[in-house]
């Protein structure tokens, strides 16, 4: 038994070392930044939402884009807590600043950049990711290939800014260096006791791919207190597409 334990220990140790080599520093409890995602954070290595990395969000329709930007806004709330500023880059921007207040994001600290074309979006994002004075950079792009994403990752390494790629209607899902691939879709909201009307926003959060973590799926609701898991247990019906998504 002792032998097995040590073997397990060795494997654990090796895994930790690999993660270190890959750039994941193990963070001690007090300095770790929680972004208020609750259960979802356990899917990431060291159970910490990776800031200073690029997250990719897939949207297939405009309604999903709204859900995705809402989810990001929920994360931004924590990232921009101490007066931080974020940059929102896009070619055809529809984000409505007053809509961000529902997620407790100070919309006056969001700077919008309207780029001419996709190439410019990526250039602006790369420049912005090098800037240490930013809390987060969000870019709306359709396609990003492995070389472009690697450039973005390199830009991040000096600054530690968190990047979000909102991929609206992507044509091909190639490999890239993003740390996680998400898909956010709307779920019917529910009010207590079957009251009429529209309730708090509710999403199905699919973490399709995550480096060194466990892809999974959750149901989340945004309330005044932040993200709340509607159902702690991931539903079995979503388990199947998850695995496919992981290899996609």
């Amino acid at each position: 038994m002792g032998q097995l334990n040590t073997k397990k220990d060795i494997i654990n140790k090796l895994q930790q070392d690999i993660m270190l080599l890959q750039g994941y520093k193990s963070v001690s409890g007090c300095t770790a930044k929680k972004v208020g995602l609750g259960v979802i954070e356990s899917a990431f290595p060291n159970a910490v939402f990776p800031t200073g990395a690029i997250h990719e969000f897939l949207n297939t329709e405009p309604e999903n884009a709204a859900a995705g930007s809402g989810f990001i806004a929920g994360i931004l709330k924590t990232l921009m807590l101490q007066g931080g500023v974020c940059l929102w880059i896009g070619t055809s921007r529809q984000l409505f600043p007053p809509g961000l207040t529902a997620f407790n994001v100070a919309a006056e600290r969001v700077i919008f950049i309207d780029a001419k074309e996709e190439k410019q979006v990526l250039w602006v994002m790369e420049q912005a990711l090098k800037c240490e004075g930013l809390a987060a950079v969000i870019a709306e792009v359709r396609e990003v290939n492995i070389i472009q994403s690697r450039r973005l990752q390199l830009a991040i390494e000096g600054s530690g800014v968190t990047g979000f790629l909102l991929r609206n209607d992507p044509r091909k899902l190639g490999a890239n260096t993003c740390v996680a691939r998400w898909k956010i879709s709307s779920l019917p909201s529910a009010l207590e006791d079957g009251l009429p009307g529209v309730g708090s926003p509710r999403w199905r959060v699919d973490l399709l791919r995550v480096r060194n973590g466990n892809p999974n799926s959750w149901k989340l609701e945004w309330t005044a207190a932040g993200f709340v898991a509607v159902d702690d247990k991931p539903e079995i019906e979503f388990a199947e597409p998850l695995i496919i998504g992981q290899h996609a």
Binding site: F112, A115, Q127
Partner: peptide, 30 residues
């Protein structure tokens, strides 16, 4: 935290304004 007064942010916005034009950078107030 890092605010709008951050020096590196000013540097970044200058770079962007000179490359893509200052009219492409917006910030909104209520």
């Amino acid at each position: 935290g890092c605010g709008l007064e951050d020096a590196s942010l000013g540097v970044l916005l200058d770079t962007l304004a000179n490359k893509i034009g200052a009219d492409k950078i917006h910030r909104y107030l209520p």
